[in-house]
Nucleic acid binder design. Structure first.
Lengths: 210, 210
DNA sequence: CGAGGTGTTGATTCCCTTCAATTACCGTGG
DNA sequence: CCACGGTAATTGAAGGGAATCAACACCTCG
């Protein structure tokens, strides 16, 4: 236990260094390989972190929503692209050594460290999920996870496409659909619309997520 | 680009806070769920980060070798277990808020941040690999990655078991063996012993790793 | 009303897992 | 030095789960 705050907070001195940015649906926030000039904090909406391979296959590392920090890079370039799933707003902080070091010395190091540790845990859990879970387990885990990150339990709204979710879980879009259909048949979820669900049996879903 | 140093360095003031620890082969360094009282830096040898599920399946998040930092947790408990692959030595730093904050104020925040960003990038790349690569691609990627982290190219020594590697790549041990055998048949690698390889065609391996 | 993106379902194929058996390796002790 | 035992590694055969290919339904928007 190093920092007790669960999230990096935009309030305070650091905010003065950042600029607010509005991004339209599917707009690129930054591109993989670009100079990592800023790191970001989501204020509203959802962003996806994507990387594309030579063969055209796409992978989504993470979805970020309000409060999440992303875009801090160990090198000089972004390791993946960031895109707006829907319209969203964020704060961009310059990531030059000098500016960030100033911020650190002003007492924000702990919040930055906390944000990174949070992302690291998420990334490790994500790796475990895609490595050793079945398609149904992945699907259940995603629904439970998303539900825990939004605040309208047992209702959830998925702003992203099926393909987005599939690329996040390492599944084909078709398989994801089949798994959702199966969860529906088994009365674990209700499908109010393609993007809106109701979790009918969260404990059972949680057990499947394993 | 935030910090230019590629690794957290044990030299300097912070070392005074840590204690050196020697660990025997397969010995537990810390257990998942234990209070996260210290974070660690490898000095020699190799450690594996493991998590075990109720159904008995094991997953390996990462292998850490000399210089790597691990065990920094956002909560009060370790999220996974750490075990020594072979005999190894490490430095354990107390992770209480007070002590670490002192270290941060003494100018080590940047190194801690860098170590975390490094681990985060590794974890994301790991997730991508296990999510969307074929067994052969995973195997090639592992060999290339391990080769880049050790310094005897084109010779590599794998201190861990086949099952360790398989659990890291999300494969069965048998499939991993078959892939290694295939790489051997195709003259991309030479097997000096079960744990010692020679990379005969690194560019081809790199291409397969995709 | 039509068009295109999105989502869903079906049929087939194939890669990987599983189960099983055999072999290789390595530390130990004779 | 060599025989021995146990673990690790390898290979084979069979089965299953997800990908792929293909067709269709749905919804939004011009």
């Amino acid at each position: 236990m190093i920092c007790t705050q669960s999230r990096f907070r935009p309030e305070g001195t650091l905010l003065a260094l950042g600029v607010v940015r509005q991004v339209r649906q599917n707009e690129l926030i930054y591109r993989e390989g670009d100079p990592a000039s800023h790191f970001m904090q989501m204020v509203g909406g959802v962003a996806r972190m994507t990387s594309v391979r030579r063969d055209g296959s796409r992978f989504i590392d993470a979805f970020h929503l309000s409060g999440d920090v992303f875009g801090m890079e160990v090198g000089t370039l972004y390791a993946n692209s960031a895109e707006a799933v829907g319209a969203c707003s964020l704060v961009a902080y310059p990531a030059h050594d000098r500016v960030l070091l100033d911020a650190i010395s002003e007492g924000f190091a702990c919040q930055i460290v906390t944000a990174l540790m949070h992302d690291l845990r998420q990334a490790k859990e994500h790796a475990r999920l895609v490595a050793q879970a079945s398609a149904l387990e992945k699907t259940s885990a995603f629904l439970i996870d998303w539900s825990s990150r939004t605040e309208r339990f047992p209702l959830i709204t998925l702003p992203m496409t099926r393909q987005d979710i599939a690329d996040y879980l390492g599944l084909s879009g078709e398989t994801l659909c089949r798994c959702l259909a199966q969860l529906h048949r088994e009365r674990l979820i209700e499908m109010l619309s393609p993007r809106r669900f109701k979790l009918l049996d969260a404990p059972a879903l949680r057990k499947m997520a394993a």
